[in-house]
Amino acid sequence: MSTQVFYFVATLSIIFSLMVIFAKNPIHSVLYLILTFFTFTVHYVLLNAQFLAVVNFIVYMGAIMVLFLFVLMLLNLNKETEPVKSPLIKIVGLIAGCCLVVTLVGSFKAATITSPLILKNPGLGLVENLGKELFGPFLLPFELSSLLLLAAMVGAVLLSKRDEVEA
């Protein structure tokens, strides 16, 4: 069962992400997206990136998914209201996507790295190691990201506020 877990979870993540874009109902898309993020969390655990697994679980499956579901419920879009896109555009989009994946896989085959993934330092993805990195060389970007989050919060509140003057 050594590497079987990876291939099983990889298959699951591909299936669920296909379901995200092919589900008719947006609510079903969000639910499949939650499952996809869960499989990504399993991938992080398998890579021994435990801090990222926990952050992925909390931020993506907690905060971002609640935001998506909340907006869907708020706009009352839980019925299949999506206008039908012409099949021509769908076929062209699919062909373009297939061309992209062929190009990507072909170019990665040229520059292939077949060496197996070996975890040299078992403490690589733990909180202690990442914290030392985050508050050492990456201190300035860390503080700047707090500024980014503040700006995003103010911007979101300002955007979704009703315009009192015009109304």
């Binding site: 992400s17 995200v20 874009i21 890579l47 989009g93 990665f108 077949t114 197996p116 975890l119």
Partner: peptide, 29 residues
């Protein structure tokens, strides 16, 4: 995690390329 040592790196590359492409197709269609 020591058992996971057998997965080659390029399988991760292929998986991520496929999922990225699924995202692109979703944006397009």
């Amino acid at each position: 995690t020591t058992q996971m040592a057998g997965v080659p790196l390029n399988h991760y590359i292929y998986l991520c390329a496929i999922i990225f492409t699924i995202g692109v197709i979703g944006v397009l269609t």
